Simulated scan of single mutants.
Amino acid sequence: MKPTQLPPLGTLIAFEAAAEYGSFASAAKKLFVTPAAISQKIQVLEQHLGVVLFDRSKMGVKLTHVGENYLVFVQKGLEKLRLGQQQIKQFSNPDVLTITTLPSVATKWLMPHVLQWMDLNPGLEIRIEASHKKVDFNQSASDICICFGDQDYLGFIQERLFTDSVSLVISPTLLESVEHSDDEKAYLQSILKLPMIHVDWGDHNDNLPDWNDWLDAVDLNITAPNGGPHFNLSSMAIEAALQSRGLLLGQKMLINTELKSGQLVKLYDINLPLKQSYFIAYPKRTLNNPNAVAFINWLKSR
Rank of each mutant, 00 (worst) to 15 (best):
78 L>G: 04
82 R>K: 13
82 R>I: 03
83 L>F: 01
83 L>I: 10
84 G>M: 02
85 Q>E: 14
86 Q>C: 03
86 Q>M: 12
86 Q>D: 14
86 Q>W: 05
87 Q>S: 06
87 Q>R: 12
89 K>M: 02
89 K>I: 09
90 Q>L: 12
91 F>P: 05
92 S>F: 04
93 N>M: 03
93 N>E: 10
93 N>F: 00
94 P>C: 07
94 P>T: 01
96 V>Q: 11
97 L>Y: 05
98 T>H: 05
98 T>S: 09
99 I>D: 05
101 T>C: 13
101 T>R: 05
102 L>Q: 10
103 P>I: 08
103 P>H: 03
104 S>E: 14
104 S>Y: 14
107 T>G: 12
107 T>V: 15
108 K>D: 15
108 K>H: 15
108 K>Q: 15
109 W>C: 07
109 W>Y: 11
111 M>Y: 12
111 M>I: 07
111 M>D: 14
113 H>Q: 13
115 L>Q: 15
116 Q>P: 07
116 Q>Y: 13
117 W>T: 02
118 M>N: 03
119 D>T: 05
119 D>Y: 02
119 D>E: 03
119 D>V: 08
121 N>S: 13
122 P>D: 11
123 G>I: 00
127 R>M: 10
127 R>K: 15
128 I>N: 06
128 I>H: 07
128 I>A: 09
129 E>K: 06
130 A>E: 15
130 A>W: 11
131 S>R: 09
136 D>A: 09
136 D>Y: 12
136 D>T: 05
137 F>M: 01
137 F>K: 00
137 F>W: 10
138 N>Q: 09
138 N>L: 02
139 Q>R: 00
139 Q>H: 08
